[in-house]
Design a protein around this nucleic acid. Structure first.
Length: 829
DNA sequence: GCAAGGTC
């Protein structure tokens, strides 16, 4: 039997299909799909199935000095046991094996891991095939000409694993121990995350150091003197000593003088008219980064964009979403794919229009790689997918269309006019040939109207205006800009960059979108810059890349490279040990700054956001236990301290981060005082204890800012119904027939009043709505997956909660037990 | 419990 091993199940299935000419059947080993035909078996891994780690005796952070990790052995551990077991058992039956993992460096390493596992079970010949896309021609060709595994290339990947682990783990432990931050809130650093964080911190430093400057700009409207002609905007400018056009006037007196001149002018003479046409080329095919950027521009976070693309990929609608490639492979027949779309109700017209071109010569980007094609639709049409998935699918289809479309053409018109010595200019642009914009509405086609005028013509000047402005600090980069910059810096990979960003959020290093660094992040970067500069520099990756190339080329060995890295890290630790206390103090101070609200009203010490033993947040005094002052915070979300300070109490305001339900809580002391002042408003009898004990329902405001309808006998009776946090609640004269309670109306500034109605009915409806939440609302579950789960008997969140992950995984193709567990934890909340 | 890299 010949065993074929691929990097993922999806590739295994498609390769089996091609090589067996559709005759392969699927069976399961340990829950892992195995494709069989003739004397062949084909199994897909799940990326790395083994990982590097330190031996268990290094596990305790307090027992092991971090520097000891530098010389610690690094061992390989099996991380995907079911797949490893399946692979081993297949290997025992095989007479030969073929490694068909992705055609890139990490693929070579994953292949080497499979090689080692197969070799463990017996000595059989093992070969390697390489192909750039899973198409008939490429795959058949590759299997007809098998090669050998490139052990040097795999070793270069292993060197990276070892260096990343050693630096990351040793420095992470050192910083965490020095700041006494163990447990969940450890302080992490790494070769990729830390330069990324520095990138964000550096921009924040520029913003903080920015000193705005005043300047003035002047505008006026111009119009042809013919009647009915629309006026157009023009801007004042002058020539500096180098003869460059300048619009900004840096001195108020000069601006006033120019404005005075402009104000008195009623007409302007056209001095020059310049026309040119500009070609606007269609965009290149999507790689991961450009896809994330485009999805970002229609409102999707990087993480969400990748999650949706992943779903569309596993469902078979788009190609593999993790790719650096921006050149379509030779096998992709663009015309053929367009013809498929020509039949489609939604895309048919646009596809037809493209097919009318004689030659379809798609655009290409700068980078061509061997592992996967650029992201494009497969030609398989989705039927039952969510709105978000449609948004993204539409984007991917139209991007493919755009790459097959004609360039657009713009006509630019620049008019310069003289208004009694004041120079005015107007730049017009008009889209004269729509080109790719006709099929790709994601790029702006905003025109700027300037009419055709002649040199020497007289124009009317109206509405002169002077605007005082200030120079602006550089803008924070959005998520997709950060990912693009990481790509330019050469850090991270197409498959990890969005995850790295997510990690920075999860670790409390960045907040909001566009991301903004916390004080902790500033502290960590500062500490690293002073004592372990390499870990926050992009040079570390650049050097590593060079070393890896040397290993791959046989010019250096894995041991030489890792040993040299060990020596460098040891020297870093010499510095760190001397400054250990200083580093710890610095980090602790930064940690505190993120939680600091202001002075305690009781004792004047610092009030801080703290976390109780039960995991909930509250405001407590740094003087504890001498001072026991506390304030409650809302129970949902993660508190974030804002820059805004409450005028009454001098405390920073607090925002509660809870995804879509994020809201500003404001000053916690204001909220508490409001609750203390608020009268409970009785609205009826308590349904639980009204008859027996005489309990009444009242609208209450809690000190945490939340409001509810609750029993006046609380805490003896705990009956309660939720109310919205915001808005004035009006108690109307209308009563609910079923519950004999008044209907409530919530008034919010600006919005239409919300007729909440009877609070019991409202809560019942709310519960029904949340119960109706479906399986495909879970992150990473698309329509196709939901279908597969339903086929395995999992049709509701309840079914999912009670399911046995391993059983489900063995029944549902392409879904791991870990994935099920992740969904279960989502379904639990 | 540390990293980064696959895949889901």
């Amino acid at each position: 039997m010949e065993l074929i091993i691929t990097e993922k199940d999806n590739a295994a299935r498609r390769i089996a299909e091609i090589l067996s000419e559709g005759g392969a059947s699927v069976e399961r080993r340990n829950g892992v799909p195995v494709y069989r035909w003739g004397g062949k078996r084909c199994i897909g891994l799940s990326g790395h199935v083994v990982g590097v780690d330190f031996p268990p005796e290094y596990n305790d952070w307090r027992d092991v000095r971090p520097v000891e990790l530098v010389d610690a052995r690094v061992v390989k551990t099996e991380t995907q046991e079911n797949i490893v077991t399946a692979l081993r058992s297949l290997a025992r039956e095989a007479d030969s094996a073929i490694i068909a993992t992705d055609y890139d460096r990490e693929g070579e390493l994953i292949g080497k891991e499979a090689y080692d596992l197969v070799t463990d079970e017996g000595d059989i010949p093992i070969q390697r095939v390489r192909f750039s896309s899973i198409t008939d021609r490429e795959v058949t060709n590759a299997f007809a000409n098998p090669e050998d595994l490139d052990f040097d290339l795999a070793a270069s990947g292993e060197a990276r694993q070892i260096i990343d682990l050693m630096w990351g783990a040793a420095l992470t432990r050192f910083l965490s121990l020095s700041a006494k931050q163990l447990g969940n809130d450890f302080i992490s650093v790494g070769r990729v995350q830390s330069p990324t964080l520095k990138l964000i911190v550096d921009r924040e430093r520029e913003i903080e150091a920015f000193d705005p400057e005043d300047y003035w700009e002047l505008f006026a409207d111009l119009a042809k003197t013919d009647e009915g002609d629309e006026p157009f905007e023009s801007q004042y400018f002058f020539y500096d000593e180098d003869d460059n056009e300048q619009e900004r006037v840096w001195n108020e007196a000069d601006a006033d003088a120019a404005f005075e001149q402009l104000r008195t002018a009623s007409e302007a003479r056209v001095e020059s008219v310049n026309r040119r046409t500009r070609t606007d080329d269609p965009p290149a095919p999507f790689n991961t980064t450009q896809y994330i950027r485009a999805a970002g521009s229609i409102g999707y976070s990087a993480q969400r964009a990748m999650s949706i693309a992943e779903d569309l990929y596993t469902a078979g609608y788009i190609t593999y979403p993790r790719t650096d490639n921006t050149v379509y492979p030779d096998d992709l027949d663009e015309r053929d794919l367009l013809e498929r779309f020509a039949e489609h109700a939604r895309f048919g017209d646009d596809a037809q229009s493209l097919l009318e071109r004689d030659d379809i010569e798609p655009t290409s980007g700068d980078k061509e790689t061997t592992d996967h094609p650029p992201i494009h639709p497969t030609g398989e049409f989705p039927t039952d997918i969510s709105d978000d998935e449609w948004d993204v699918y539409d984007l991917v289809v139209r991007r493919f269309f755009a790459t097959c479309a004609e360039p657009a053409k713009w006509a630019h018109l620049k008019v310069v006019a003289d208004a009694s010595g004041c120079l005015l200019k107007a730049n017009g642009k008009r889209l004269v040939e729509e080109g790719y914009h006709a099929v790709y509405p994601y790029h702006s086609t905003t025109e700027n109207y300037v009419p055709a005028v002649e040199e020497g013509e007289t124009l009317a000047v109206t509405d002169p205006r002077q605007e005082d402005k200030q120079t602006q600090p550089p803008r924070r980069r959005g998520q997709s800009r950060i990912i693009e910059t990481m790509e330019q810096m050469g850090i991270g990979t197409k498959a990890t960059r969005h995850g790295t960003l997510q990690k920075l959020y999860d670790r409390g290093y960045i907040e909001n979108d566009p991301p903004r660094p916390t004080r902790l992040a500033m502290g960590v970067v500062e500490a690293a810059e002073r004592f372990a500069d390499l870990i926050v520099s992009e040079e570390m990756t650049a050097q590593l890349e060079q070393d890896m190339t040397a290993i791959a080329d046989g010019e250096a060995t894995l041991d030489e490279v890792t040993d040299e890295s060990r020596e460098i890290l040891k020297r870093v630790f010499e510095d760190l040990h001397v400054s250990r206390d200083e580093v710890g103090d610095h980090l602790r101070e930064a940690l505190k700054a993120d939680k600091l609200l202001g002075p305690c009203p009781d004792c004047g010490e610092d009030l801080l956001v703290r976390r109780s033993r039960y995991g909930s947040y509250f405001v407590g005094c740094d003087g504890y236990p001498d001072c026991e002052y506390t304030l409650p915070l809302p129970s949902s979300g993660e508190p974030m301290v804002l820059d805004e300070v409450c005028e009454d109490h001098g405390l920073n305001e607090v925002k509660m981060l809870a995804g879509r339900d994020t809201y500003t809580h404001g000053c916690p002391l204001c909220r508490a005082e409001e609750a203390d002042d608020a009268e409970d408003r009785v609205i009826g009898a308590c349904p639980d204890c009204g008859d027996d004990e005489g309990g009444e329902l009242a609208i209450k405001t809690l000190r945490s800012g939340s409001r509810l309808v609750g029993c006046t006998r609380y805490p003896d009776c705990e009956y309660s119904l939720p109310l919205p946090r915001k808005g004035d609640i009006e108690v109307t004269d209308e009563f609910c027939d079923d519950h004999d309670l008044p209907e409530l109306v919530v008034h919010n500034d600006g919005d239409d009043p919300w007729e909440l109605g009877c609070p019991i009915c409202n809560f019942a409806e709310y519960q029904e709505r949340t119960a109706m939440r479906n399986i495909d609302d879970l992150d990473g579950v698309g329509a196709k997956t939901a279908e597969k789960l339903a086929a395995a008997g999992i049709e509701s969140l309840d079914d999912l909660r009670s399911a046995e992950p391993d059983d489900v995984a063995s029944e549902v193709q392409g879904v791991s037990a870990d994935r099920i567990r992740e969904w279960q934890s989502q379904a639990a909340t």
